[in-house]
Structure formats: structure tokens, C-alpha cells
Write a protein that binds this DNA or RNA. Structure first.
Lengths: 354, 354
DNA sequence: GATGTCTAGTAAAACGATTTATTGCGCGAA
DNA sequence: TTCGCGCAATAAATCGTTTTACTAGACATC
């Protein structure tokens, strides 16, 4: 925002932003009048239609746009939300963000996005900085929030109960049930579970849901078949390594249920390299249904989370909470439903060959 | 940003934001003094160390944070950039954005991200709206810009020459050369090319580079083997369809070079479904090297673009241009180099079996 | 005693809007 | 003639900073 523009407006586009005052001067009106008209304020009722038209015509002609900073300062509203994600370039967060943007932009809101990469200092600092930037609300995606904030918050897959926070969660009980029933129905009895990283908000809840589902099906969860992702890069590397180790230990199993599709894809690679066929020898179930899941080879059987929709719900919920700040009856939890997507990475279990 | 906080600060975190004036009152100093001290302004030289300490101590104690809106309004700086992308949840843009964020946040800048989904009205409108939000500069990723903007602009894979715009481009000549030499060296002579969508900025440049490379290698580009992606969703669907059609026409070829990895993955699926083996019958080369490329089955041979690095370069370039607004000697074009990543989706050509 | 130089700050004007209270003015009614 | 009222607008305060120009006192110098 240079103070002085070096060149004159070349031609049609008047690039020198024009203030309300200049516009008022040009119209021989006061800034107050122009402002009232532009904002269609009820106080403008007494201003004759003719003048109103004159004002609007001039505004169009000079392409007047109110200075955002000044307006926000005065109204104490920024039409800006904060979005905190662990990592932008990752399927999960990107899809949720996409859903958020979709809706926000329609409503004239913008979002400031930050990613914390699980660094505790950033996790602590970012919400504060965003508040300093006058955000009116915050969406935290797969991000553990520590404290209450002075603005409405929606946490996508946050599982802590914090005052002022609406938790948007998947029905993990149902998700686990769907996957487990699918594997069970195919005759799988020795199933590997790849748990999520410790820092991932869903890890704990999902794991507990899986164990419940197993119990319900009379399926024993063998401790030696339970492994956990380690490391904070969002890469199939992690699922690959953990599966390699499992194979190196000589464990026997017929199916594998991964924490997410990314990990499942890595696991498949490890299985193949060990000479095992998927799904011939081992059935694999992923989680999330990221865009590439359908185009894996074999196409991935997975539990779909409606990620984009979750972003949209988060945005609408937050905006309506912002619109009614006094209302304390906002939802504390919103649950969305998963969907089992059966593709080609699972099939009938054969007897344990290894 | 509710005007009145309903509840008192519960305990330790003083959530009621405190103004410079209140702080000054508390200290029995003028706002001016406090401001000078807080900003470590050279004009604060005459203020004794002791007073300075007193001010800073109080600021810490009350957790004072200058109001962003007021400060920006006064200084005419927003420490905010605009980022325009076609689509957030897409490998290419997400990686570039990730690189941008990485660097920006370190520098105290934030970014407002919008996605236009190739809608012409949004393409026209968004830069204006962002300007209204007082952005100091703009990064356009794979987005055709129409007009000159009153702020510095960096276009990632923009190929138009517009005053005030720094174009950050891949060395497409080299990229095409690498891929073509690779295929040529493996003995491939009949190669399918999947061109990018018309709206994608790289499409034209890359295609021209490919033809040049072919000529250089004495390789004929058969028109019947050239197809183009249609549709604006970032899905492997597109590559799948176009390849299916090609196969339905009964074309014969031994290799396929796709516009991007996403399309290559779709193409592979279509080839397999037609009973062809990759790379046994058909070698496939992708482009970009998205995160999942290495974990495809077969692992994808592809031309890597340093996407994350491109984001970083875009951000540093833009910030340095913002820091020196008068300097007209900024780079008009920055070129980054591709890298050939040979994996398992290409191999020696066999004689044409079909 | 007049002048100059430091020191330690302050007053006040921006920045560009929004909004409340107020002001002439013309006109009909008492 | 005076009062009240609707009309058409405006003046001025405000949002919370930043920044330039200024001041009041203390001390030193000529």
C-alpha cells in the first residue's frame, strides 16, 4: 500500500483508491450523507431518492470501495475468521478448508489460515496473534485447543470440552462399526490396526470405538497386531514403515485397518514389497476417502468422512454463532455420519497362509 | 469481536483487550510515549531506560496487544497478502500455498486465500476485493490475471507479461526435454500426450516445449495421439476418461505423457482396465511429483516441480518487492528447474503389440 | 542576562470510515 | 406570531494507533 502512486491511472481503471471524503466533496455532500446512503442505513430514509441515486452513481463511476481497515475499526467487526490447521498440504485439512472457503466467501467473510505443524509454541501463540488481528471467530481443524477464547470457536475433530467451543465430530462409533463389520463379514479374524499419531485428535476416540466394535463382534484385538504411526509428516512413508516392521516381526494376519488412507497406501506398498497380494492375501481398509483413494491400485476400500461438508458445517455454525453472540444455546457438539465405501482392496479372507 | 464481554475474565487470561490509552492512563503517561516505547521508535531515544522498562513491564503484565486494525489504518500497512488459487484442495496449489505460509508466518505476514474455480466473475472480482482489504501484495497461483494491480504481484505459472508482475515459472523447455529424452531413450516412438485444460496457465507453454523437444529428437508427434483434459475438477476422473476414449478409438502407442500426476493416475487406471500392463505394455510419465506419486502402484515416473520451494520463492520475492516499492528493477521472471524422477511406471518399449 | 542544548516527555493531527445528535428551513396549525 | 413538525442533510465524536511538532524545565555557555 504505497503512500503515493508513482504513475497516474493508465486509463480505465482508477487505481488510486478514493476516500469517502473525496467522494463527498465531489458530490458537495457531507461524508455522513454518503456513508448513510452507501450502507443503506435506515437513517437514510429521509434522504430523497434522487440524491441517493446521485451518490450511488458517483460511487460506481469512481469505483468507490470503503476502506476496509477504517470501516472495521469503527464497527469493531472484521469479517475475518481464523483457521488453524496442522498442515495445509494434506488431504484432510485441505478438503475441510475447501469446504470452509466455499461458504465463507459467499457470506463476505475471509479467513486467515495458519498451520502449526504440531509445534506447541505455535499452538499457543497463533490463536493470540489471530485475535490480535481482530478475528471474529476461529475454526480449529484437528488441532488441540488449550484455553477458552474470547470469540466463538468451532473445533473440527477436537474432542475436548471447552467452554465456548462447538465440537464437530464424526460418528466414530458408527465408523468403526462399519469397517469392523465389513471385515468381519468377509471372514477376517486376525486384523492389524494402525493407530493414528498421539497428537491427532481422532486417535483416541477412534481407537476406543474400534475396540468396542470388536468386542461387539466377539473379535479379539491382538495386542501384537496393534501398531501406531510415528512422526508428523503427512506421508505414506509412515504407514509403510510401520507395516514393514510388523512384517519383519513375522506377524500373521489377513486384514489391516489403517488410521487414514495415506497410511493405508503406505501399508499396501509394504505388503506388496513383501510379496503379499492386496486384497488376495491381505485386505486393507483405509479411512477418510481422500480424492486419490478411488484411483489407488487396487482401489481403496475406506470409511468416508464428509470432509468438505464438515468444513461447510463448521463455517455455517461459526457464522451463526457470530451473528448471535449472546445466545448461549449454541450446539456444543455436532455429529456427522461416515459412509462405508467398498472398493477393491478388501475381499473374502482366505485361511492364514503365513 | 463482541462490543461487550458478557463475563468477566475468568482468571489468569485477561481477555478484555486493553487499549493503548488505558495503559497510558495507568502509567500516568501519554499514549504517545507508550507508543514510542512499544515500537522501539528512534524517537524514543530521549525516554530514559527506567521509564521504558516501566512501560514494557506494564504491557507484559496486562498482556497489551496493539489493535491491529487501528495500527494498520494509521500506518497504511496491513502485513497481509492475497493469494489467489483455482482450488484449495488440489495437490499443486496446496503445496505451493504451504511453501508460501511457511515463509510468510516467519515474517509476520498473513495471507488471505481465495479460490476462483475458474469462474470469470470471481477472477475479475477477487483481486479487487482483496485490494479493498488492504493487501500489500498478491500471489496468483496458476491463475490468469487480467489487469495491472496497484500492488506488487507474483504469478506462479502465470505466463502473461503484465507490468508490475513477477512471473515465477518452471523451465518447461528443460522439463519437456527430460521427459522426452527419457521416453526416447527407452525406445518409445509412439507416445500419447495428454494436454492440460485450456484454462491452465502451463498448458500452452508446456505443449510448445514438448513439440520442440520432439522435433529435437526427431520424434513425430502424431495428432491422433494428442488429447486434452476437459473439465475443471481436479480429479483423476479426467485423465481416466480421456484415456478410455483413446483406447476406444483403437490407437496404438507404447507410452503416455500426462499433463500432471493426477491425470497420469487416471490414465493408468484406464489402461489397466483395458487389460494393458503399466509399464509392461505402456510406459506412463506424469508431471509435478505430488506427494502420492511415489506411492502409486506402480510408483509413478514423473517430472518434479519444486512446488513448495516455488511457494517460498514467491513469498520472499513478493516481500522484498513490498519492502522496496520504488525499485523498478525487480525480476520480471524467475525460473526454477525441474527434475526427472524415474520410478516404476516406465520401462523399455516393446514392439507395438496393438 | 541572553542564548543554546538536553531531557523527558506531550498535544494534536492524522488514518477513513460510522453514527448520534443536531440544525436550518419551509410550512401548516393554533 | 409562534409553535411544532417533517425534511434534508450535517457536525462532530469515535474507533485505537502512530508520528510530527512542540514545550517546559534544567543546566551550561558566552
Amino acid at each position: 500500500m504505497p503512500r503515493k502512486r508513482a504513475t497516474h491511472s493508465s486509463s480505465d481503471s482508477p487505481e488510486q483508491p478514493l476516500s469517502l471524503k473525496s467522494l463527498a466533496d465531489y458530490l458537495s455532500l457531507s461524508p455522513a450523507t454518503v456513508s448513510l446512503v452507501m450502507n443503506r442505513s435506515p437513517a437514510a430514509a429521509s434522504i430523497p431518492r434522487k440524491t441517493q441515486e446521485r451518490v450511488r452513481a458517483a460511487a460506481r463511476r469512481f469505483n468507490y470501495r470503503p476502506n476496509f481497515l477504517a470501516r472495521s475499526l469503527r464497527r469493531q467487526r472484521s469479517f475475518t475468521l481464523g483457521v488453524v490447521v496442522p498442515e495445509i498440504s494434506e488431504g484432510y485439512a485441505a478438503l475441510v478448508m475447501s469446504g470452509i472457503e466455499d461458504y465463507l466467501l459467499r457470506e463476505g467473510y475471509f479467513s486467515l489460515v495458519v498451520c502449526h505443524r504440531h509445534r506447541p509454541d505455535l499452538l499457543e501463540e497463533y490463536p493470540k496473534i489471530l485475535l490480535g488481528r481482530a478475528i471474529e471467530g476461529l475454526i480449529a481443524v484437528d488441532t488441540p485447543l488449550e484455553r477458552k477464547l474470547p470469540v466463538p470457536v468451532v473445533a473440527v475433530s477436537g474432542h475436548r470440552i471447552i467452554p465456548g467451543v462447538t465440537n464437530l465430530v464424526l460418528n466414530h462409533r458408527r465408523a468403526a462399526g462399519l469397517a469392523m463389520e465389513h471385515l468381519h463379514a468377509l471372514g477376517h479374524r486376525r486384523i492389524v490396526f494402525i493407530k493414528g499419531q498421539e497428537f491427532s485428535s481422532d486417535t483416541r476416540v477412534r481407537w476406543s470405538a474400534i475396540r468396542d466394535a470388536a468386542r461387539h463382534l466377539d473379535l479379539r484385538v491382538a495386542p501384537e497386531l496393534v501398531v501406531q504411526l510415528q512422526g508428523d509428516v503427512p506421508s505414506s512413508e509412515l504407514g509403510y514403515h510401520v507395516t514393514q516392521e510388523l512384517l519383519a516381526r513375522g506377524e500373521k494376519f489377513t486384514a489391516l485397518f489403517a488410521f487414514n488412507d495415506i497410511a493405508a497406501i503406505g501399508a499396501i506398498r509394504a505388503l506388496r514389497e513383501a510379496g503379499l497380494s492386496v486384497p488376495g492375501d491381505i485386505s486393507v481398509v483405509g479411512f477418510d476417502d481422500i480424492q486419490s483413494a478411488a484411483f489407488q491400485n487396487p482401489a481403496l476400500t475406506t470409511v468416508r468422512q464428509p470432509l468438505r461438508k464438515m468444513g461447510e458445517i463448521a463455517a455455517t455454525t461459526l457464522l451463526s454463532r457470530i451473528a448471535n453472540p449472546a445466545d448461549t444455546s449454541y450446539p456444543k457438539e455436532i455429529m456427522v455420519e461416515p459412509e462405508m465405501v467398498v472398493r477393491a482392496s478388501t475381499c473374502q479372507a482366505r485361511s492364514l497362509s503365513r
